[in-house]
Design a protein around this nucleic acid. Structure first.
Lengths: 154, 154
DNA sequence: ATAAACCAGTTGACCTGTCAATTAATTTCG
DNA sequence: CGAAATTAATTGACAGGTCAACTGGTTTAT
């Protein structure tokens, strides 16, 4: 019996959600520190850039689906990234409601420069985790995420 | 080889941090929905209540250490919870800088009523996860969290 | 053809999270 | 003792996150 299932060791962190919240706050602080000091980017900006490298010319709605960001927040973020020279916005010819977002050269260069650092960080986070354990970890993440969509708790 | 380590399937979510961020956002939405609709509480309020049930008469500083919340945010939250009738604040007799927080009867009742729901939710999240897998999951969470404290990425 | 329904993005309001500066009480130490 | 350092909590400023109402373009269905 270890500290994670010993009932006599019951703290708020017996809840997996509490543990994950604390983990998330540590990861955010770390990523914020790296990105801000080395590239002047926020986490949201970094995620948007990476998402646009994957899904070229994506629209805000498509991006929102991929990175689970609120479309309102996204709209404002796009505006600020355009004024920072990281993005350009183009209106779809066929459907004037839709925008296509594109990374500028500056954003591509920033991404090229930071990617090795962010991958090094990823490796650092997982350096002591075996392949088998990581696979199990991801499968549990998948299961918890699926269950998080349920809204009716009996 | 599964989708989590297939390089040809590389998306932003190849980053464990992206996966965890998305998971966290789903969990937050779920907890927010349950707590708001059934008890009129926010997640932060729920966490504070649970933490105070564990660490009775704790001071804001002690709580901040346990739940990893910013002391500024905590100060404001305490004020609002006092005005909602969930907390009382007492000044320490020996050290007039320190406060001791106590749950009101209302807060205790709310907690009693909601705890079974929140435990049911916890069980729902983990229902398909075996004990062994959960132990591995927690050990990976612990390792990632430890590595998240490192600030100097080579 | 056109009114209703729908969809993409914007805006406003409000709460949460983080950082830094400040105030006031207590402790340390010359 | 009493100035300096430390600690607890507060406050201000600002980015991030969520919700809902709104604007304007497009599709659907009569």
């Amino acid at each position: 019996m270890n500290k994670h299932n010993d009932p006599s060791y019951r703290t708020p962190y017996s809840f997996v959600t509490f543990r994950l919240a604390r983990l998330q706050s540590g990861l955010n602080a770390q990523a914020t520190a790296i990105l801000k000091s080395q590239a002047g980017l926020s986490i949201v900006e970094w995620r948007l850039i990476q998402t646009l490298r994957m899904f070229k010319d994506a629209s805000p709605t498509e991006i929102a689906a991929h990175v689970q960001i609120d479309k309102g927040q996204l709209s404002r973020k796009i505006k600020s990234m355009v004024s920072k020279g990281l993005l350009t916005v183009e209106i779809d010819k066929k459907d004037q409601r839709q925008q296509h977002l594109r990374l500028t050269e500056d954003a591509e260069r920033l991404s090229q420069r930071m990617m090795p650092k962010m991958e090094a960080r990823q490796n650092l986070l997982l350096v002591d985790v075996s392949g088998e354990d990581l696979a199990i970890f991801y499968s549990v993440v998948d299961k918890i995420e699926a269950a998080s969509k349920i809204r009716d708790i009996p």
